[in-house]
């Protein structure tokens, strides 16, 4: 399995080497521009020069954060990542457990849809971040952030599953019927497999939102640390090199998780023969 993965990776890199080179160049240009701006601010002794540290200092802080144990909390960046990951995974599981069955039900049965729709449409536009203070007070500092993440992941998954169910081609349903399938079997053997790639799309989108939620939630109240906590903590005392380092960590984690989800999504679609 790992050999396959490695070979696929090699293949992808070989096929897309031009894109990768361009990506590296663009990142390098960005860093150079950042460095120049930071220099400029120091030249003119701007009041906020400390808020734009040199890229090198951020890189140093990034490395340091993994090695250095904070004297007050006893945590390193690895610990923070672990804490945030824990909450995201928990929130993710909760969201999936509720959203998938609900999405399947709402997509299939008009009555369930009629009951659920108004609530969904009312709550959906509210950004999960708005709920943070309430959730943390009502649910506490462990389940508050987890609930925020769950809320953030819930809607994309729910809507994509619903959409998937509704998108099942009617002829496939007809074919299943003429092959003797009853409602239950149609659901298990046609609707479910058909919806899976849509589900993965929802997961991919949801995970992106989930990271944003966990960072914001951790800034409001927490225990056990977390990358969001780290960012707020370092920003509060003005250690901006570390703050940026924390932001980079979030960015990378986000890319990684959504990348994995996207990879699974493409694989699944291909296997389903739908791409």
């Amino acid at each position: 399995m790992t050999q396959d993965l490695f070979r696929t990776l090699q293949k992808t890199v070989k096929e897309n080497w031009k894109q990768y080179v361009l990506a590296v160049i663009s990142v390098a240009v960005f860093i150079a521009a950042w460095h120049l701006y930071a220099s400029y601010l120091r030249e003119i002794d701007s009041g906020y020069k400390g808020y734009i540290p040199y890229p090198m200092d951020v890189a140093e802080a990034l490395v340091d954060s993994f090695q250095y144990e904070d004297p007050n909390t006893g945590l390193t960046m690895s610990d923070h990542i672990g804490a945030s990951l824990e909450r995201i995974i928990l929130g993710f599981l909760i969201a999936m457990v509720v959203a998938v069955p609900l999405g399947l039900l709402m997509g299939t049965f008009r009555t369930v849809d009629a009951v659920g729709r108004p609530i969904v449409e009312l709550v959906r536009p509210i950004p999960p971040l708005a709920w943070i203070p309430i959730f943390i007070v009502v649910l506490g500092m462990l389940w508050g952030p987890v609930a925020i993440v769950a809320l953030g992941i819930f809607f994309p998954v729910l809507l994509n599953v619903m959409f998937g169910v509704r998108s099942v081609e009617p002829t496939l349903m007809d074919a299943a019927k003429t092959l003797g399938a009853g409602r239950g079997q149609m659901f298990l053997k046609v609707v479910l497999p058909f919806t899976t790639p849509y589900l993965m799309t929802g997961v991919k989108v949801g995970l992106g939102i989930g990271w944003m939620c966990i960072v914001a939630a951790e800034m409001v109240g927490n225990y056990g640390g977390g990358v969001g906590f780290f960012i707020k903590d370092t920003a509060d005392v003005g250690e901006f090199e570390y703050m940026y380092a924390g932001m980079i960590v979030i960015g990378l984690l986000g890319i990684f998780t959504t990348g994995v989800a996207g990879f699974i999504e493409t694989r699944l679609s291909r296997w389903m023969g739908m791409k």
């Binding site: 081609e169 002829t171 496939l172 007809d174 074919a175 019927k177 003797g180 497999p193 058909f194 023969g273």
Partner: peptide, 17 residues
């Protein structure tokens, strides 16, 4: 509908997965 009447469709209606 039942399996005693088999049907073949213009759009094939095969299960892609």
């Amino acid at each position: 509908a039942g399996s005693d009447r088999g049907m073949v469709f213009q759009e094939f209606a095969l299960f892609p997965w």
